[in-house]
Design a protein around this nucleic acid. Structure first.
Lengths: 336, 336
DNA sequence: ATGAAAGCGCTAACAA
DNA sequence: TTGTTAGCGCTTTCAT
């Protein structure tokens, strides 16, 4: 059977294509009777509007792209879900872009914005630099950011207060009586790492504990990387009694290293991580971890972004700093 | 700065728009010299082709939609990654559709196909019935299927040999000396459940063990559901020495129930699951589990689907039955 | 090897 | 409230 177009409906309902379009798009300047006629024709013809034509004419794709480094990582999956659900409820679609941990791929996906495949692009903790990203926003492309903040009048962001986050963990350790606290940081050049290091140092200072350079090392956010970094740390120093890992993967790496080295958690070493992934509740002792509201971060940003595109500008607020909360479990309790 | 279109490039290069289009699309009937001229103009104008125009005219979106019930579940994430990576390497984009476990949403996403937002749709273990899906394929829409098989000349599928999978697990249990083996099945009406039940029964028969109705119960693939189902089972019978759970979540539920009931794994009860999720390696004892090549299933299907759309029909094979492999760990070894 | 011309299917000014 | 008329930006016959 031939697929019908708007002109077919118009003829059958004895109106103009414009009127059909109005009915389709819920314009309120259509007579109820006319509308009924049109609806009838649509039904009889099994008419379904062709989205390609609509896009071209209206210059809108109603589609967002979300770029992450690895879809499989639960951190990203959770954020994507927040984005997708919010987008869908606002009649937007979501293109998924798996950058496979390659900065070059992130760059490639930016072309989706330029060639008008999508109306906006959301970057989740990208490897691109602030400047590289800002260029696009400057050129009028709509970009949203999750997990990082860039000062730009047009770029909505949602991100965690990393200083506060790190501070909270260290305060907790101090309360448990720890004085020598190591920090397994992420990539040295990452924003997050900087901020968390700041929070770490701040909290130490507040507690009157001197900062020591060799109690800090960097990992790559992987279990293996955490394991290695911990061993490295341990080869220099063996007097620390607590470790703050920049994420749970690295905390798991610490667990692995401790198993090998015969270090008992939490008696000889307290451990805490970030993300509060499901796994932290299945290993023994369960890992204390900082939980970020990932789903909400995705959803809020998306709402804001779409709002901005549609010029519903209560342009007051573009930047959402969200609070994380430390979930204390056995890995950091009951220390001496 | 004004954004330029194909006509601007044509003028600047002193050729026709058609020629520019040919260059853009890598047609080989373009003089090398002409091509160079056009490329130069493109560069000078920073010309970027507009995808909306292209789509409308070529009647192709170069986009796939993939429908899953919950993006966050690692089972789906892994498949999606396979799909996305393959699609991308073939210059296709992927729309992500989170059905939030609602059949109604799955239906809604089918409209993406009908209104030409995407060229094809991939359903991953959908809740829709075979008939509901087949209707669309009959009407000429391109649909691919993962985790289920539907006999249809136009519908590529990739799915696991569930009979074999279940058989393998039971054979393993029998080899370990078990004779009373329980089966925590998934939804009673699911394809997979049927097939696995068949494999279970078959293996028992081969081992000369009579099938007993009350050694089988159904769960909902969740940890909680598995826990409950196990307790239910256990309230009728307490003589079985092994449990085969239809997925790892349910196996985790069994672990939970056993912890509550004081049953020791694997000494008093051997356990095995399906999916071999990461968690199975972090609980103690580690859970024996059947691993499916999810990434590959996604990738293969996608390749086939795209191939089919582009009429590269070595139409011989549409159906990919893949083998899963049992990874034996501590939860099912060392039983009496 | 290149160009001219005709749309793909729809919406948005502008008129009426 | 409805219709008329132009395109949105591109590709693709059909000529040449």
């Amino acid at each position: 059977m031939k697929v019908s177009k708007i002109i077919d409906v118009a003829k059958k309902a004895d109106v103009s294509p414009a009127t059909v379009s109005r009915v389709l798009n819920g314009s309120n300047l259509v007579n109820a009777k006319t509308k009924a006629k049109v609806m009838q024709a649509i039904r009889e013809l099994d008419y379904i509007p062709n989205n390609m034509g609509k896009q071209l004419r209206s210059r809108k794709t109603m589609t967002l792209a979300v770029v992450v480094s690895d879809i499989r990582v639960s951190y990203y999956a959770e954020i994507i879900k927040g984005i997708e659900n919010m987008a869908n409820s606002l009649h937007y679609k979501v293109l998924i872009c798996d950058a496979q941990n390659q900065k070059a791929k992130e760059f490639e996906f930016l072309s989706l914005l330029m060639n008008r495949t999508v109306d906006a692009l959301i970057l989740v903790t990208p490897n691109l630099s602030d400047e590289e990203i800002a260029v696009y926003a400057d050129n009028g492309y709509t970009i949203g950011l999750i997990g990082r903040k860039i000062e730009h009048p047009q770029m909505p962001c949602s991100f965690t207060d990393n200083v506060k986050l790190a501070r909270e963990v260290i305060v907790h350790f101090v309360e448990q009586g720890h004085r020598k606290i190591a920090f397994l940081c992420g990539y040295a050049d990452a924003m997050d790492s900087q901020a968390r290091l700041e929070g770490y140092m701040k909290a130490l200072q507040e507690a009157g504990i001197p900062y020591e350079d060799d109690l800090v090392d960097n990992g790559d956010f992987s279990e293996e990387g955490g394991c290695e970094a911990f061993k490295r740390l341990r080869s220099h120093r063996s007097d620390f009694t607590a470790v703050f890992a920049a994420n749970d993967e690295m905390a798991l790496g610490v667990y692995k290293a401790c198993a090998e080295l015969g270090i008992s958690i939490p008696d000889q070493l307290a451990v805490a991580g970030v993300d509060n992934i499901r796994l932290t509740n299945y290993v023994r002792p369960r890992i204390s971890s900082v939980e970020q509201p990932l789903y909400a971060m995705g959803a809020v940003m998306t709402e804001k972004l779409i709002d901005q595109m549609n010029d519903n500008v209560w342009a007051d607020k573009r930047s959402f700093k969200v609070d994380a909360r430390l979930v204390v479990k056995e890995s950091s309790k009951g220390a001496e």
